[in-house]
């Protein structure tokens, strides 16, 4: 992307490239991912670990597309592969569908009870997996959305991936109550399978092994958010923390 500053205005001049998706020539801004370019033009590519507000990591591998010219084609993650001039992309070739079915079978073997995985698999005609399930109750697909949300949006990085497969998991440091956590709940909110335990009772929110007292609004008395989260906001904005002790309805 090229930024040009004209008098008083910012104008974005984005170089465009022409590529072909499923035989249709189209333009896409340089630097855009194949996934975004394809979706922008109405091609349907399923994803699990992609979120438009977070950097792509290519964890779930559902967004596979085939690139290149026959017979030298290969499968890549469309979410992490940038558009290229003249690139030939196929979003629904036999190879892609086969790859995607395999990914879904693997996901289904890991999390047989995850509704979102079941639904995506069913769309591809898959109702069971030929692979072994380690834990039938497992719900975490290791998409890493929670880790990225906490790091990139919340900005505290209270959780991360730990260990390696097959023991890989999302964890707080040393699996202890997370010191850095502000109890905002973003991780639980973004989780596509709802596996992050989270309770709210009598003005206390419990998440990642810690209890966070909720702050009542100074005016109406309704709970706003964990005090720790409001303190975090005050810290990053430099406003006095009391400023946040009034809920948005009473401002």
């Amino acid at each position: 992307m090229v930024w040009k500053i004209t008098d008083e205005t910012f104008e974005t001049i984005t170089e465009e490239v022409i590529l072909s998706i499923d035989g249709i020539s189209l333009r896409a801004p340089q630097g855009q991912s194949l996934l975004m370019a394809a979706r922008h033009h109405g091609f349907d590519i399923p994803t699990l670990c992609h979120h438009s507000d977070l950097p792509s990591e290519g964890n779930c591998r559902l967004c596979l597309v085939e690139i290149g010219e026959h017979p030298r084609t290969r499968l890549v993650n469309s979410c992490t592969y940038p558009v290229e001039a003249g690139l030939l992309v196929q979003t629904a070739s036999e190879k892609v569908l086969q790859g995607r079915r395999m990914v879904l079978e693997l996901l289904l073997a890991r999390c047989p009870k995850a509704k979102i995985v079941q639904d995506l698999a069913a769309q591809m005609g898959i109702y069971e997996s030929r692979f072994k399930t380690d834990d039938p109750e497992e719900l975490c697909i290791l998409c890493g959305l929670c880790v990225r949300a906490c790091r990139e949006v919340v900005g505290v990085s209270a959780i991360s991936m730990a260990h390696r497969t097959p023991g890989k998991l999302v964890a707080t440091p040393f699996l202890e109550a997370a010191e850095a956590c502000i109890g905002c709940g973003s991780c639980a909110f973004i989780c596509p399978t709802g596996v992050i335990p989270y309770t709210e009772k009598d003005g206390v929110r419990t998440i990642w092994g810690r209890d966070f007292p909720l702050q009542p609004c100074n005016v109406c008395g309704n709970f706003i958010a964990p005090t720790a989260q409001l303190e975090h906001w005050a810290k990053i904005t430099g406003d006095p923390v009391e400023h946040y002790f009034v809920c948005k309805d009473c401002r």
Partner: peptide
């Protein structure tokens, strides 16, 4: 660096 990264 965040402690999470070190643990990771």
């Amino acid at each position: 660096v965040p402690l999470t990264r070190i643990f990771s």
